[in-house]
């Protein structure tokens, strides 16, 4: 393709800059809110704070439980990390194997299980809240991080399965056949050939699973009854869930919660594109 003309190149940059401004502006406003004193929601035009304070961050990080005196932020951060980490491991492991079966094996029920993985996304999750609560209660998993982890994993699995299946479809089968001829068993082929080749897709699904668990607060707030077993988003949400919303604290919390995800995005951005859609086109 011949490179575009100068005018069109300038126009392209202009559009991209505008789009970036659109994408970044709200985030800058939150950053400003987090750095300025006061708790009101006075979002004005300029994203540059007039006076800077770190007290909101200090308050959020230093929050303690008024009852037990425990360091709330630390505990909830640990909960969040634990839940999100376990969710990622569980979700990605289960999705990898399932996607591999769907991609490589032709077995009865293949189409319908793929349909089922898509269909479970269609029933509004908010309305599964009550049956899910009852179910977890019966299974004795209510108020336990394990229960939350399981629920998040299943939320993440359908998307991961579809993405990974699409990616596996693009991997040449000849490699696997070669490995088999060299004496590798079905599991050996999977672990030693397929998985190492699929690193981009696995990175993306891991990121997705992590985000699912890291950002969720409705289920976490409902299934957990103690402050100390909440995850971070619940804490953040509580700052505005009160009768007098503390927007400064909320903004600081929002930044703190978003930072790890942003960092992950940045670290994985190379894989993001190839991992997500390599399966789209039969190349």
């Amino acid at each position: 393709m011949k490179p575009p003309s100068l005018a069109s190149r300038i126009a392209g940059h202009l559009v991209l800059v505008l789009a970036c401004a659109f994408a970044v502006y709200p985030v800058l406003l939150v950053l400003k809110k987090a750095l300025s004193p006061g708790q009101q929601f006075d979002l004005s035009l300029s994203p540059i704070p007039t006076s800077i304070t770190l007290s909101h961050f200090g308050d959020v990080i230093g929050a303690t439980d008024p009852g037990s005196g425990h360091w709330l932020f630390g505990r909830q951060l640990a909960n969040s990390l634990l839940v999100a980490g376990l969710t990622t491991i569980l979700g990605v492991t289960a999705s990898c194997t399932a996607a591999y079966a769907l991609s490589r094996h032709r077995f009865p029920g293949r189409r319908s299980s793929m349909g089922a993985f898509l269909a479970v996304q269609m029933f509004p999750a908010t309305l599964l809240l009550i049956p899910l609560y009852v179910l977890l209660d019966r299974l004795g998993l209510l108020n336990q991080l394990l229960g939350l982890t399981l629920v998040y994993s299943t939320t993440a699995i359908p998307f991961c399965v579809w993405t990974l299946k699409g990616y596996f479809d693009t991997l040449p089968r000849e490699l696997e056949e070669a490995a088999r001829i060299d004496g590798a068993g079905p599991f050996g082929v999977f672990f030693r050939v397929v998985l190492p080749l699929s690193r981009p897709a696995i990175a993306v699904t891991a990121l997705f699973s992590f985000m699912t668990a890291w950002n969720e607060f409705i289920l976490a707030g409902t299934f957990m009854s103690r402050q100390e077993s909440f995850t971070l988003p619940v804490l953040i949400h509580q700052y505005i869930g009160q009768h007098d919303a503390e927007w400064g604290h909320f903004a600081a919390g929002a930044i703190l919660v978003s930072l790890p995800v942003m960092a992950l995005f940045y670290a994985l951005q190379r894989h993001l594109v190839s991992g997500l859609t390599a399966g789209g086109v039969k190349g």
Partner: peptide, 14 residues
Amino acid sequence: RVLLVLPWAVPNYI
């Protein structure tokens, strides 16, 4: 690319 992907990284209730 980094700037344009930013909105995706922000939790959607926020």
